[in-house]
């Protein structure tokens, strides 16, 4: 029997697996290129699902997973996609992923699925997802594309959770459903009897979508006043 000669594997001078560029892909969308506050995409769901922290958190994670994996899939098949129907291909990939997310949520977290209801389906039309596919995944390798998707999803998620935390606290006196500040003995701080905070009434405006608009604009305001780079670009 002849000995099998194993050809020496050529070692390419490989790019670092998680180098400076990759870090930038995750960090940029969190702050300087945030999908909500800078690109101003996906605002519709940011107004609708931010009354409480838990649905906002699940929504954020779902969107991050969908953007990440749709970017990955599209980037893997980007060279074979016929240019004429690329939008359709992108939409099919997004729709399949979103449907899977919805089915899994319905099976494992039924209450949250009920609360998010139509908004999970609307991830399909969330501009962030398709925007990243067109702008990034169609022209980049799978790994950076995946990171870009996850980064943008997380950038969306943290704004959602931040707004939801403010709205839930001031609107319902609670965080993640734990009652903290409110007008009855069910709350940790009972504003009816507590003399220090007895002036506080849960703010009904915070429960309505309009307050999310106000909060987003305030976040944009703070962000731009701190970051000179952002002031001139839009």
């Amino acid at each position: 029997m002849a000995e099998v000669v194993v050809a020496p594997i050529e070692v390419k001078p490989s790019e670092p697996w998680f180098g400076k560029n990759e870090k930038k892909l995750i960090n940029d969308p969190l702050h300087i290129d945030n999908p909500i506050t800078v690109q101003v995409l996906g605002v519709c769901s940011a107004l609708a699902v931010t009354t409480m922290v838990k649905p906002a958190l699940i929504m954020g994670i779902s969107v991050a997973l969908v953007t990440g994996f749709s970017n990955l899939v599209i980037s893997l098949i980007r060279n074979g996609i016929p240019k004429q129907i690329r939008m359709i291909v992108q939409l099919v990939v997004i729709a399949v992923l979103v449907t899977i997310v919805e089915q899994v949520l319905k099976a494992f977290s039924f209450d949250v699925w009920k609360q998010l209801s139509v908004f999970i389906g609307l991830i399909i039309t969330n501009c962030i997802v398709m925007g990243r596919l067109e702008a990034f995944a169609m022209a980049n390798k799978p790994w950076p594309s995946f990171l870009d998707g996850i980064g943008n999803g997380l950038g969306y998620a943290w704004i959602l959770v931040a707004i939801a935390a403010i709205r839930e606290f001031f609107g319902r006196g609670a965080i993640l459903g734990y009652k903290i500040l409110g007008p009855s003995s069910e709350f940790l701080i009972n504003t009816k009897s507590s003399s220090l905070l007895s002036w506080y009434q849960p703010n009904g405006l915070m429960v309505l979508p309009a307050s999310a608009m106000l909060l987003i604009t305030i976040i944009i305001w703070i962000q731009r006043s701190k970051e000179a780079k952002l002031v001139d670009i839009s």
């Binding site: 089915q103 319905k106 494992f108």
Partner: peptide
């Protein structure tokens, strides 16, 4: 496959 697999839980 996904929908059928998760149907009993739904």
């Amino acid at each position: 496959f996904v929908v059928n697999g998760l149907k009993p839980m739904h």
